[in-house]
Design a protein around this nucleic acid. Structure first.
Length: 294
DNA sequence: CGTATTTGACCAGCGC
DNA sequence: GCGCTGGTCAAATACG
């Protein structure tokens, strides 16, 4: 997948908490019990990197700088020394259309039909030959294009741990060697029933200390209550203050955020002012686009 | 024993 | 059409 190569650009600083980010992206009900929230406790920050970017109507990738914006809101950004802990994130959607809610619905419907197909086949198709079985299991008719309507978000995270705890439970379902890379790519699926979110985890061959995590889809549930280590660290209602707006990536699939700053302590994150409205980021992004075009 | 991981096989899509 | 690659499946295996 050459289109997904995670190129890193020079970056300005912005704090970015992938845990919060995805908790928002997942569309989880508002005001849920934070005690079930997992800790964001790995010693990394994440930022956004361009992943698969191929939406015709989206602007070309633009550097998003948060320098100069409300330093009260982003007080930890931009002033801290570079450390070994930094990461990046990007988002993408497919030709099917970024942020197309109808597309999402179609995807869900399709998936449901596939599920039904599978279960039905388990019961009645025992006598068929293997090939027919395999096609049925894949839930695709011959010649049917594999569609990817789900938005994808890639994080580059500097970490020694391959599989970072993000609050959800994942089941590994595959591993493949990556072309031109000594490191394999692992495929994970959310273990929660009816949640179709997937993620890929691979290590950058250019910088083995960087883990590239690509999420696909949106969680349809809260964090599992029994996540290992999910206890108290983020049991704070202000956690949402560092979320990105849910449609931010959806509607702005081409941009990049990267961090120079080490992750703020949880305290720092949690004491962000309540008016740290992430819609701000959207505005910032727009203004950056404008300035780039000008 | 239930759950998670490993791993080889298979399929789809794409480029040549 | 063929070969390559990414993505997925599912049986076997490992683990707690």
């Amino acid at each position: 997948m050459s289109g997904e190569k995670a190129e890193l650009f020079h970056y300005d600083s912005v704090l970015f908490d992938p845990f919060s980010f995805f908790s928002h992206l997942s569309g989880g009900p508002q005001g849920f019990d934070d005690s079930a929230a997992p800790p964001f406790n790995y010693s990394t920050t994440s930022s956004i990197l361009p992943e698969t970017l191929h939406s015709d109507h989206e602007p070309a990738a633009a550097t998003l700088s948060l320098h100069g914006i409300s330093s009260a809101n982003y007080k930890a950004g931009g002033t801290m020394p570079v450390t070994a802990n930094s990461s990046a994130c990007s988002s993408s959607t497919t030709e099917a259309g970024a942020g197309d809610q109808d597309g999402d619905r179609n995807e869900q419907k399709e998936r449901q039909e596939q599920e039904e197909n599978r279960e039905g086949k388990k019961d009645d198709d025992d006598g068929d030959d293997d090939k027919v079985k395999k096609l049925t299991k894949l839930g695709r008719k011959k010649g049917e294009k594999r569609q990817r309507d789900q938005p994808r978000f890639a994080f580059m995270t500097k970490s020694q741990i391959d599989h970072l705890e993000d609050g959800y439970r994942w089941r590994k379902y595959g591993q493949k060697a990556v072309k031109n890379s000594p490191f394999p790519r692992s495929y994970y699926r959310c273990t929660t029933q009816k949640c179709s979110v997937k993620k890929r985890v691979e290590r950058s061959y250019q910088d083995p200390s960087i883990v590239i995590t690509t999420y696909e889809g949106q969680h349809t549930h809260h964090y599992p209550a029994n996540v290992r280590g999910s206890s108290h660290l983020l049991a704070n209602q202000q956690q949402q203050h560092f979320m990105m707006p849910p449609n931010f990536l959806h509607h702005h699939s081409q941009y990049q955020l990267q961090t120079l700053a080490p992750p703020p302590s949880l305290d720092q994150q949690l004491h962000l002012p309540a008016d740290c409205d992430l819609l701000l980021l959207q505005d910032i992004y727009k203004s950056v686009l404008n300035s780039n075009q000008a």
